[in-house]
Write a protein that binds this DNA or RNA. Structure first.
Lengths: 148, 148
DNA sequence: GATTCATTTGCATCATAATGCAATGGTTGC
DNA sequence: GCAACCATTGCATTATGATGCAAATGAATC
């Protein structure tokens, strides 16, 4: 049914192979973006278009400054923001290009998995290297599960 | 410094205006993707490239079937998966195109906010309609903050 | 050196969510 | 109808994370 030889025939086989999507579907990034307050702060700094200090950002939302500080640190840890200290002020800026690039790469990886893939692309969804799972995500086919 | 007239000068002003990024930086989507187990299940179904039943998916991860069922329902609620019942079997499939499209739209919105925007694009990062916040995200500028 | 300001950290509290087990609801096949 | 099967839901437990307040850290100014 599927001409691509690197396409797994079952979820168990799919879990056992590792493709671009496994790396790009990174829970840590999404964990940073999944909180409404944090998403709002990010949108705020993004729209502002310049590095913003913690207190500046705190001025436009209802939560405590300490909470804002923690949120921005979380976003920085996820490589969504970068920070720069200027005296006693710390300014956070959006890593526009890195972020949009990551999102597009994920979109590409998803399309590559799609059976009616738009992308006639070079790489398939699975890089069948030895049929070993990439070990990144939780679902790991147990070695014994190589079914009939 | 910035030629774009629709660019806010401060985070408070930025929070008060509403752009594409506010809608696209949707915490609900990221909430669905932020759990490692769930991300793994999604990657698994995506790589498989065909609709998968709950028990099929459960066979390739270490958590209980009921947990998998709940995770898949969560992903469906976030429009990441679609489901189809076939007798007593429910098969979940990845909404490849919708998902990648959403991610690309977000990437575009982020780029539009970038001062050195690649996209010479039509829309700016803020659609300065009456300088009212879009009310979607938490940070909401107080109504008195309608700047000069 | 002391004070002030911006940010961060410690700590306690509260809310949300992940998980497993058991039970239930439907559907198929005998 | 009854048994087997698949999926979902209820419930309890546990873990994680968001939040606010207070205290601490670090930097600039007097």
């Amino acid at each position: 049914m599927q001409m691509n030889p690197s396409r797994p025939q079952s979820p168990v086989q799919a879990a056992a192979c590792c493709g671009p999507i496994d790396r790009l579907l990174n829970p840590d990034l999404f964990k940073a973006l999944c909180d409404p307050t944090r998403a709002g702060l990010l949108a705020c700094i993004a729209k502002c278009g310049r590095p913003c200090s913690v207190s500046e950002v705190a001025a436009c939302c209802s939560v405590d400054t300490s909470v804002v500080s923690r949120h921005l640190a979380t976003l920085e840890k996820a490589s969504v923001l970068s920070s720069e200290r200027d005296g006693r002020v710390v300014r956070y800026a959006v890593r526009y290009q890195e972020l949009s690039k990551t999102l597009r790469a994920l979109a590409d990886a998803i399309d590559q998995c799609c059976p009616e893939g738009f992308v006639p692309g070079e790489r398939g969804c699975c890089e069948e290297k030895g049929a070993l799972g990439c070990g990144q995500a939780s679902p790991v086919a147990s070695p014994e599960h190589t079914q009939p």
